[in-house]
């Protein structure tokens, strides 16, 4: 009889919820995790948006000009469809700007500092390098882009 068959074990794996909740870290010390979570959520929103976008834009081919104009008119003012569109645009602005940061960091290994000997106060080089500033810039730029899109859609 093996140990595993005699005794029970507990699988403490967090599963998918770790991709959507900041478990294991505090967001104040690890904004990269917040960017990671937002990138995942916005990615899922964009998948839904692309599907809806393809269906709505081929209205012209399916039903003609009048139906197409009716489709576009849905985005005027505040209604459920334009609200979903605003959410999708927010997701798009964050996902695209954060994507540029990720390409620089993940493919070209830029903005993550140089390896160095640990010294007080023991901050890892990658968490104090330019990519940390790039994250804050990403949040601000995405917010500005989103506000601009909402302004153009609803007020302009």
């Amino acid at each position: 009889m093996t140990i595993k068959s005699r005794f029970k074990v507990l699988d403490n794996r967090l599963g998918v919820k770790a991709s959507f909740l900041p478990i294991g870290v505090t967001i104040a010390g690890n904004p990269e995790r917040l960017a990671f979570i937002l990138h995942r959520i916005t990615g899922i929103i964009l998948v839904g948006f692309i599907a809806a976008h393809i269906i709505s834009t081929n209205t012209l081919a399916r039903e003609g000009w009048e139906a197409w104009i009716e489709e576009v008119r849905n985005l005027e003012g505040l209604n459920p469809i334009s609200l979903l569109f605003i959410i999708a645009m927010g997701a798009l602005s964050f996902h695209s700007i954060n994507g540029i940061r990720l390409i620089m960091v993940e493919f070209l290994s830029l903005w993550i500092g140089r390896p160095e000997k640990p010294k007080p106060p023991y901050d890892p080089p990658s968490l104090k390098s330019f990519q940390r500033k790039a994250i804050y810039a990403t949040f601000i730029l995405a917010l500005i882009a989103w506000v601009a899109i909402i302004y153009v859609m609803l007020i302009w």
Binding site: G24, V25, G29, N30, E32, R33, F36, I37, H39, L102, V105, E106, F107, S109, I112, G113, P115, P118, Y122, D123, P124, P125, S126, L127
Partner: peptide
């Protein structure tokens, strides 16, 4: 996907997140 939580919690400042990006 560079959540960098590994580097944040590392008690020896090994910085695995940066190592993986360099590796990639």
């Amino acid at each position: 996907h560079f959540a960098a939580s590994c580097s944040y919690v590392c008690p020896k400042v090994v910085d695995p997140a940066a190592a993986i990006q360099r590796l990639r």
